[in-house]
Design a protein around this nucleic acid. Sequence first.
DNA 1: GCCGTTTTCGGCCCGACTGTTTTCAGTCG
Length: 588
Amino acid sequence: MTNKGIASLLRKVAAAYILKDENRFKIIAYEKAAEALENSTSEAKDLWREGKLTTIPGIGKTISSHLDELFRTGKVAHFESVFRGLPAAMFPLLEIPGFGAKKAYKMAHLLSLKNPDTAVDDLLKAAQDGKIALFKGFGEKSQSDIIESIQRFKKGQVKENRMPLPFAYVIASEILEYLKLHKDTKEAVTLGSLRRMVATIGDIDIAVSTKNPSSVVDWFLSYPKMGELVEKGPGGATMLLTNGHQVDMRVQSPDKFGAMLQYFTGSKNHNIKLRELALKKGLSLNEYGMKPIRKAKKLYEFANEKDLYNALDLSWVPPELREDRGEVEVAAKRKLPKLLEVKDIKGDLHIHSNYNLEPSHDLGSSSLEVLIRNAEDLKYEYIGISDHNPSFTKHTPNQIISILKARRAKFEQYIYSTKSVRVQIFIMLEVDILPDGKIPIPEEAFEYLDAIIVSIHSSFHMDKEQMTQRIISGLSHKKAKIFAHPTGRLIGSRDSYQVNWEEIFQYCQKNDKALEINAHPTRLDLPDGLVYEALKKNVKLVIDTDSHDVSQMTLMKYGVSVARRGWAEKSDILNTMPYNKLKDWLTG
DNA sequence: GCCGTTTTCGGCCCGACTGTTTTCAGTCG
């Protein structure tokens, strides 16, 4: 059973407890545990095998013993007894937006829904037949809302609507630019997951600081790419863009802007931590500021976030860290990391050129010359040209050797002939790790390579231990220094393959290998949760763009944001090193 | 049921919105 499945089971238990009027903090505990599992980078089953289930925050003695029973026997007697007396058909209804435990129970009970597999459809039919509006506490509006929710829910099951961060970032940047054109806009910034630079974004949320809210709202609503207006009020407005994405803009006066910014940046759990902390100091924190618990009338306002955090005796927490991963506690000690910044990056080691070595995968579209010139513009000290390896099904080993020999000669000839080049070049290769762990490059060919990056491009569905050994085998060559896009995920279209990360981290740390944070928009891989874990184990990382075109070299900032979300400092990232040091590591 | 540089007992975030209500229950972020 995966984390997702277990989380859904725990949510069912929480729902059952709500109906049985259990202690509400017990209910919250189950919901918290479910959420923790959904966000965990480790599979609960693996932790269970190692006896470390309670290392997940929110899972304590009781729940871990229930899960132990679940993994051993496939069911939990206690949970079954909690579910007793409740209609099984209510549980699928919990997935519908707007449905909680009570509404789901009411519907399953009143409509005598029996079959969990058809419960959602049965409910939809009942609503369409006008049966819901007859129930006490429900009316015509509730009935039509239910129909709409179910239809939306069914659509959502087919297509996940979240988009990769870089796409949302570009859309939002344009809107911010536009908003700043208005004379009454004092400040315009992103909010929510976008400000925290989470890898996938749902809606785009934006805040504007202004003394003249209505004129800014009107300006927003005349945005050229507006598709349709969803709603408009004194506090802001919501629109759908012509491309279908939703944008939510809210306005606030400058003297309260800090409190609003903090509140809507989240995350939810970070905010809960702050409010708990505020309470201990006799203060209640909300969207508008803080008030003393005893004098509810008085409100302390905050024009900026720094003052708000300082009022709680915390140092300002960068948005990327606001995930309740311990940042509040560390901020109380004034010991937050000095996070990596884009300007710290001194080179990009994973760039594909258009040199045609008849590769196993796609060729880049830009020439070495163009790439170098761009690297100079970016003020890089070095780049690595890491084309895909020559296809080994189409070439003999000897052909591969001569292809790589010719490539090196060509590159070196260009480099030596161009005195103006200040950027140093590493002649590298991105090499597939085959299913058996071998790398399809004959030993003699390594003479023509400074180093290689290894990665997985086939046979994704392997047993976890086999996959782990495959990766370690691929990394074992002394010139293999970097494991690229380590989880293999493609955001929105392909899940990660199964890997024992503990083992990979240990191997990399012991053998001086680096894991890549791939900044490509649909990858952002390593994901931030694993970056955090890797850094705890002292694994070194590199951030690369995997550019297949010169225009993609600017995507580095997204890789940096992933690293920041994983608490990375400059010293954790190898390509912040100056050329000589980086060269020692890469070719040493 | 979980958790701990003010606690191993006694706490556990806050407000908005919505629909059906004459004062609130349920859900959401």
